[in-house]
Design a protein around this nucleic acid. Structure first.
Lengths: 193, 193
DNA sequence: AGAAACACTTGACAAATGGCAAGAAATTAA
DNA sequence: TTAATTTCTTGCCATTTGTCAAGTGTTTCT
């Protein structure tokens, strides 16, 4: 199997030698998921770390009214993990589901732990991944707190236009924190401009 | 100086031996900050990691209209860090400012790196700290996306009532993503209940 | 192909929140 | 203590977003 997408992801994040990347990704195995399939279900414990090689995923929760609230949209290539569940081995609150057909690489916590403690470069990589993800989330909180829905929509459209070609609008709406009716109206308004 | 608050913070997060904690916190030094003082300014690079021993801090950004948007409120004891700036050594976008008089323990990136690569327990601790912070932020995004202002206010009041005794309402309002007028009205409404 | 389910839009109206300005209350500075 | 500054509240009205229900396409399934 061709691990180049996975391997290149490491190289793209920070300078690291090819041999080390190969050693890190050695234990990763390939699998596929059809669209609309659950990768990791609510109330289960994540036993694997997942690298999304191709496709679109999302995570969502069910609120008090049992409505789906999309918490994140993942576009390959990227890691898709419930950090809390995976590293603390506790049940997830979120459901991770494929939106399109997807391909993945996965490895176990045991392998991650072994790499984390034995390969200094992997430690740095892991921490960098956390830092980057933390700041993406931070930016989203800031946006949520200070921008109106229309601005958030326009930002997303500008930053990730491909999402609008691959993800249903109602999922995007819920990710933006608005209803699908509102998103529809905002789209109608902004087309005029 | 008495490092017990700092040391206890390590013990409270996960099982770790006293000797190891002492080794980790060995290089931390003490300092104080008066209220309304900047700890880390916008566009500067964070050279230290900070543990807030006593007091209240916040981080905020200036939006396009030069209005302050509070991104986080910190209540001791906790670490206060701009992860992106500290670990990637790049300028912060946020301003970190004391709200009350504060006391801190700080150490340099060099010491953190040394501990990270030499003390397995510290690696685990660091990762756990990231995971916890990431999920606090994640919960906040979910709340922002799916709950109305009144609910967010009531949740905060329930979870961190002490903040309302120590932090001005306009800072809390901006943290909740609403105006101070709206927060004032919400408070008026909810008192009735 | 036909039925069912899903995705998207739209209208009418309701609810939530913001903007602005004024004033009261509390805190800080002189 | 007085003055200045900051914090908080409130009223009025505007804007944004939600709710619900209907209608039109589009996919999916059998």
């Amino acid at each position: 199997m061709d691990k180049s997408t996975l391997n290149n992801y490491f190289h793209s994040l920070f300078p690291i030698e090819e041999d080390i990347v190969n050693k890190i990704t050695e234990t990763f195995t390939y699998f596929e998921l059809n669209k609309h399939t659950i990768l990791l279900d609510k109330d289960t414990i994540s036993t694997k770390t997942f690298f999304l090689e191709k496709g679109y995923m999302r995570s969502y929760i069910l609120n008090e009214e049992n409505e789906e609230v999309t918490t994140n949209i993942y576009a390959a290539p990227c890691f898709v993990n419930d950090f809390l569940s995976f590293f603390k081995q506790q049940p997830t609150k979120e459901i991770y589901q494929s939106i399109t057909d997807c391909t993945f690489w996965e490895t176990s916590l045991k392998n991650v732990q072994s790499n984390f403690h034995n390969i200094p470069e992997f430690r740095e990589f892991s921490r960098l991944l956390f830092v980057i993800n933390y700041y993406k989330l931070n930016d989203r909180v800031i946006e949520m707190a200070s921008q109106k829905a229309e601005t958030r929509y326009l930002n997303l459209l500008k930053q990730k236009p491909h999402i609008f070609q691959n993800v249903p609008l109602k999922i995007i709406a819920s990710y933006l924190g608005i209803t699908d009716s509102s998103l529809s109206r905002i789209r109608k308004e902004t087309v005029k401009i």
